[in-house]
Design a binder for these strands. Structure first.
Lengths: 343, 343
DNA sequence: CTGAAAGCGCTTACAG
DNA sequence: CTGAAAGCGCTTACAG
């Protein structure tokens, strides 16, 4: 996607290639109705193929705009990323255009049209699942772009930025073990995403390294959201032999676990220790404040901007994927395993 | 700020007025060094006064970009507003450029420069305190703009959108009274902001209407953030005669109150009822889920976009300020006052 | 439906 | 330091 600065794609270049005059191409671009369907077709595909972008009078100059694209904006990490991206973009004098691909088919077209016409210098995509047709359309825009991917899709042709999910899973589990816990449950994330798998594997590795068996009853599915965390908590503490600690693959699920525990009259951390993943602001404000594995989302955003910027400047990127370190943040939701008192 | 579409401010118009040639103005605009200081000065002030904006070849056409400006992005309502603004902007085919005025003097200049050069069609400002010099500079940009103001500064020359803070304060208090509470504390917000005053007055009105005295010991200062809420909670429940209910002027402070109560071993809502203000996502995920006064932030964002759009189109706005209704959202942090048992 | 011509807003050498 | 001239990318009547 990071094509080297090719000889300016202008309207007249396209016109020549299509065997028409410049005004005709202009008409197509501006959606005027009076163009023969066949001609329009030919010109449109050429426009796409060559990655035509409006540039006004001043040549190939940068326009000082970066697109920041989310699948949708409800994700609780959205702001964290926006903050990092805004910060880094500001530092290089760029503005960021944030948008969400609202997943109605019709508006995707409209959205692409908008992106195309604002001709920003590059794009940062934040997305757990870009479907492949959309991906192709994005390529047609010929914008240098990088994907921030807190959840890990390591198979793109585009540079990707993630976090060390496996190591995060390991460190949380290690910590719980160091506190004396032996029955440690894991609430997993959306199973189709790589990061879920990596966090789970980190958890398993932690147990195995300590010589503990992985008890499949203590590994419960989740969807990353509050509700599934709540259900997981209900299930786990309905068990004949409940865990003494719960590690969940997202902070949101952990908040659901809190609520399940509260309803059963169990206390964090006196009765049960709990660890989350992400370190969203809500982790700090939970009661008790939540021990969690921090994902450096803002930093990932900053790196993404620096990376697109290098692509815009024609540099090539050495590694197609880089993962930033996660870090265990210990707060008040974890404690040594309760002595041995029957609960 | 909403000037009617005047006869195109072009480089040559400015040149003529300044008594120089167009290339000279162009040089000033592009920050070339080779312009006499006096000339540059004259041209710059003319540029500002006329509200010059780069437009490329296609005339006064709209560019499909709206600036969305925050003081900074840590405010927990930022995303809510972004979501509403993005949604409405998307609907009219605009992109939104999100930025934060990082409050270092130097970068404000830089930021204004960026805003000027991207020539968006209008601006939505979200801000609790714009200092007046910045306000003046913003006016120089000659962009139609509206202020979203969850905290209420009703003295601007710009259309403002807020929420019914007083009514919200009243409804929360009423509800607590209806539950049988008589000792109801209020944790106030930043005292210099109008909204804080309005919420406090709503609380007072609620008590007075019910024939209850306002006990000044139960009105404690806060700053809207978690920490001040925590301190307020510590204070309130260190009192000889603590309240049976606490209403705070923000959800964040309420989460601080939760933590203060938890540390004292008091339960929500069995021992103490608690109400917040804002209805941020964290309210739903608190444990127990928080009863709170909802501020329709996304809706305020949508309305802001519709309003700038009308200004861009040259329409005039009937009311300089509109307040959207707040709404009490009852969840699990409130209950009838505990019978009479000594605690 | 399409092109030749004129025009617009801006910028870039070039000369002084 | 500044302007006259040429040029660039694009669009707008106008004619056919």
């Amino acid at each position: 996607m990071a094509d080297t600065p090719t000889p300016a794609v202008t309207i007249s270049a396209i016109a020549e290639e299509a065997g028409v005059s410049a005004p005709t191409v202009s008409r197509v671009l501006n959606g005027r109705g009076d163009v023969a369907p066949a001609t329009r077709e030919r010109i449109e595909s050429l426009l796409r193929a060559r990655g035509y972008r409006r540039r006004g009078s001043r040549g190939g100059e940068m326009v000082g705009l970066l697109d920041l694209v989310f699948n949708d904006l409800d994700s609780p990490w959205a702001v964290e990323i926006i903050r990092g991206v805004e910060d880094a973009a500001h530092a290089v004098g760029s503005g960021i255009v944030v948008s969400a691909i609202h997943r109605r088919a019709s508006s995707t077209r409209q959205w692409l049209q908008n992106v195309r016409s604002r001709t920003s210098d590059g794009a940062v995509l934040v997305t757990t699942d870009l479907d492949s047709s959309l991906r192709a359309e994005l390529e047609d825009l010929h914008m240098p772009s990088v994907v921030i991917d807190p959840v890990g899709v390591p198979d793109l042709a585009v540079p990707t930025i993630g976090a060390t999910n496996w190591a995060g899973g390991l460190s949380a589990t290690d910590y719980l073990i160091s506190l004396g816990h032996r029955r440690i449950a894991f609430v997993a994330g959306r199973p189709e995403l790589w990061c879920s798998r990596a966090r789970l594997d980190g958890y398993r590795a932690g147990l195995e390294t300590a010589g503990l068996d992985v008890d499949d009853d203590l590994v419960v599915p989740g969807e990353f959201d509050y509700e599934s965390g709540f259900r997981a908590g209900e299930h786990l503490f309905g068990l004949a032999e409940p865990p003494t600690a719960v590690f969940s693959a997202s902070d949101q699920m952990t908040l659901g676990v809190y609520e399940a525990l509260r309803r059963r009259g169990l206390r964090v951390p006196a009765d049960v220790s709990v660890i989350g993943f992400d370190d969203l602001p809500e982790a700090r404000w939970a009661s008790p404040p939540l021990t969690t594995v921090r994902q450096p989302l803002a930093e990932m955003g900053r790196l993404a901007v620096r990376t697109v910027h290098r692509l815009v400047g024609g540099e090539s990127i050495e590694s197609p994927r880089v993962e930033l370190a996660t870090e265990l943040v210990v707060r008040d939701s974890t404690a040594a395993v309760p002595g041995a008192p029957a609960r």
